[in-house]
């Protein structure tokens, strides 16, 4: 499982980059969902989001999940290319698979990489 150390993580499997404001789903999440076939970003640029607000909806061959804002603030960018290439979420969840950027983002309850890894291990049994 890939868990970059510069990112923060939520219990609902989103990541948040405090340096850039970018957010997306974790490697663990993409692996659980398996082959992702549809992504819909539910927020627009300029919109204010609060922690826990649904920002995207993701569907795979077997499952469906809502993605929640890991931080509060103004949406400064949306990854528009994602809807044409939803498989990017499987191949590069922390890079090309970023979903939105939250400006001035105040993170909600988040874990560091080590904490998130322990949390995921605890769930796999």
């Amino acid at each position: 499982m890939n868990t970059p150390s510069n990112l923060k993580y939520t219990k609902s499997d989103e990541w948040f980059d405090p340096a850039t404001g970018a957010a997306g789903i974790t490697d663990y999440a993409q692996n659980q969902l398996s082959d992702i076939v549809f992504v819909e970003i539910l927020v627009e640029e300029g919109e204010e989001v609060s922690v826990g607000k649904a920002i995207a909806s993701v569907e795979s061959v077997k499952a469906s999940s809502e993605i929640y804002a890991p931080a509060a603030g103004k949406v400064s960018a949306v990854n528009k290319g994602l809807s044409d290439k939803p498989e990017t979420l499987n191949s590069d969840p922390y890079g090309e698979g970023w979903m939105i950027k939250i400006e001035g983002g105040a993170a909600g309850e988040v874990m560091d990489a080590a904490g998130y890894e322990t949390y995921c291990e605890g769930r796999s049994h």
Binding site: V37, F38, E59, V61, A63, S64, E66
Partner: peptide, 13 residues
């Protein structure tokens, strides 16, 4: 196909 749109997976959404 695209069964994740449907009620048995997406439930109330």
């Amino acid at each position: 196909t695209l069964t994740a749109r449907e009620q048995h997976i997406k439930r109330e959404r």
